[in-house]
Design a protein around this nucleic acid. Structure first.
Lengths: 215, 215
DNA sequence: GTCTATACAGCGATAGAC
DNA sequence: GTCTATCGCTGTATAGAC
């Protein structure tokens, strides 16, 4: 349960330095406030060098945000333990992920998600969908894709509200209470019963279910 | 339940034209892709005129996004009806808000929220907190601020996932099914029992509302 | 008040020299 | 690999016309 080790892997020192600088810049100035020139300035190199390494601003920032995550590996961690407490474990894991004092990278991710639809797509495809998908596929009795989507929604907004936007109530809540409350809600999303359609729409539900195709 | 009428109120025609142009630009090019010069170009005026009216780009975009909303008025609409179905009514209302074909303004708001922390703050303070706060204050038996925060989280991410990011599952779900599923979850947030602390900290004014919830 | 003209520093991108 | 020069674009600022 130590996300930090997964992201960092050897790369050329200059490249590494530029990415670190970019992460700092994103945190301090926001995604769009970060410039190639600023990253170069902070690193003490020429702006064109940044472009030489990354080709474009977007590519630099994508790499600064992406890191190297294996969501399925994380999902396996979560799935080790009682299925009835998977909600709590997800919340605990994500809080640890975001609050990891050893690195600012997880917050870079959150901040960037808010600032750029591109990065949001990246987060979605590279982490959120496979992570929650793997968990729901294992523990959810029916319509796992729907349950994964709902659970992912809750966790993403929890992170954004608490760490980025600073929504008053969620920011002040203690970790333990969050785990309890959000964990329970998540658990219901994943393994609780889904509300049933009241009229004769079960056909539509069944169709939606079989026709579900992530694209 | 017609959000559109609340936003529009008389203002100088040039100002109005510029704001409309800004909203279009935001929708087409994204928040940061929108420029004073682009708005001026679209409106056929000099870029400096835009600055004369709004002072800065941020101010223009804030006004283009803000409109004139009275969240408490909306909350009153929601509160008219059975308290046990307030969750469904919120979802139905918000979906109508976002999908209103008569105007693109609600989507401008969503898109902008994703793109700029400033706008996100505005949305939070001017709409989300008072809207959900007013509802929770009326229907939630205990800790209404916490319940409002949780409910707001769910709705915001539903909107972002469905309309902006295009998360696969949530985007394809039918309106009716969303109302049912998310509505029920919202209802639980607002009026259901909260999980109790093990050290007995939060006296979850228990029982009372066992009819609607317990997923 | 309403509007235009001009100048400025900064940005991302590109081409090419060493 | 590293750097210089240059392009068109941006937001901002000031001066001034009607």
């Amino acid at each position: 349960m130590d996300p930090g080790t997964v992201w960092d892997q050897p790369m050329q020192p200059t490249r590494r330095m530029l990415i670190d600088a970019a992460q700092q810049e994103i945190l301090e100035r926001g995604y769009h406030g970060t410039s190639l020139r600023g990253v170069a300035r902070r690193s003490g190199v020429d702006p064109s060098l940044v472009r030489h390494y990354f080709g474009s601003k977007d590519e630099l920032l994508m790499q600064a945000v992406q890191g190297h995550i294996d969501p399925v590996e994380f999902a396996k961690e979560i799935l080790r333990g009682a299925p009835g407490a998977v909600g709590s474990r997800i919340v605990r894991f994500m809080l640890g992920f975001w609050e990891d004092p050893a690195s600012t990278k997880s917050l870079v991710r959150l901040v960037s998600t808010l600032n750029s639809p591109q990065i949001a797509d990246l987060m979605k495809d590279a982490f959120i969908v496979p992570f929650f998908g793997a968990i729901a596929a294992e523990v959810s009795p029916d319509r796992p894709e729907l349950r994964a989507a709902l659970a992912a929604s809750q966790m993403m907004t929890l992170g954004l509200s608490r760490y980025v936007l600073g929504a008053p109530t969620l920011s002040r809540m203690e970790r333990q209470e969050l785990v309890r409350i959000v964990g329970r809600s998540l658990q219901r999303c994943l393994t609780g019963p889904l509300p049933e359609a009241k009229d004769g729409r079960s056909g539509a539900v069944a169709a939606a279910r079989t026709g579900e195709n992530h694209g």
